[in-house]
Amino acid sequence: MYYVYILFSESSDVYYKGFSEDVEKRLEYHLHSKGKFTSGVGDWEIVYVKEFANKKEALIEEKRLKRLNRKSIEKLIYG
């Protein structure tokens, strides 16, 4: 299975969208990484996860999510 996820950092007030086969492991990477976007932010939390049967569908959804504005992301997460 593949997953598309959205993380939120309260301290930075920012959302991060991505995909992975293991969301919890990926969260740990973001929390402790020196990655370009997620480094220095230690309070990422998972706020949205959607499961896909294959990688192609997950990547299409990730791309769609990355194009959404903040209002649309929050509507998706919080209804």
Rank of each mutant, 00 (worst) to 15 (best):
M1A: 09
M1I: 10
Y3F: 10
Y5C: 01
I6G: 03
I6D: 00
I6R: 04
F8K: 09
F8H: 11
S9V: 05
S9L: 00
S9I: 02
S11N: 06
D13K: 15
V14E: 08
Y15H: 09
Y15T: 00
Y16T: 09
Y16V: 01
Y16E: 11
K17W: 01
K17F: 05
G18N: 11
G18M: 01
F19N: 07
F19H: 03
S20E: 07
S20D: 05
S20C: 02
S20H: 07
E21C: 04
D22Y: 01
D22T: 12
V23C: 08
V23R: 04
V23S: 03
E24R: 13
E24W: 02
E24T: 14
K25W: 02
K25M: 08
R26F: 00
R26L: 02
R26D: 01
L27R: 02
L27Y: 03
L27M: 01
E28C: 05
E28Q: 13
E28R: 11
E28S: 08
Y29T: 15
H30K: 06
H30W: 10
H32F: 14
H32M: 08
S33A: 04
S33K: 06
K34R: 10
K34V: 11
G35C: 11
G35M: 01
K36A: 15
K36W: 15
K36V: 14
K36I: 14
K36P: 07
F37E: 15
F37C: 09
F37A: 12
S39K: 09
S39V: 00
G40F: 06
V41R: 07
G42V: 00
D43T: 01
D43F: 08
W44I: 08
E45W: 01
E45M: 01
I46T: 07
I46M: 00
I46A: 00
I46G: 03
V47A: 04
Y48T: 07
Y48S: 11
Y48K: 00
V49P: 10
V49S: 12
V49I: 15
K50S: 15
K50T: 10
K50F: 03
K50I: 12
E51T: 04
E51C: 08
E51L: 09
F52L: 15
N54T: 05
K55P: 10
K56H: 03
E57L: 09
E57P: 04
A58F: 05
L59F: 05
I60Q: 06
E61R: 11
E61Q: 13
E61G: 02
R64W: 05
R64D: 06
R64N: 12
L65N: 07
L65C: 02
L65K: 02
K66R: 13
K66T: 14
K66D: 08
R67G: 13
R67T: 12
L68W: 13
L68I: 06
L68C: 13
N69I: 09
R70H: 04
S72N: 14
S72L: 07
S72I: 14
E74H: 07
E74R: 09
E74N: 10
K75C: 03
K75P: 05
L76T: 07
L76Q: 14
I77S: 06
Y78C: 04
Y78P: 01
G79P: 12
G79M: 02
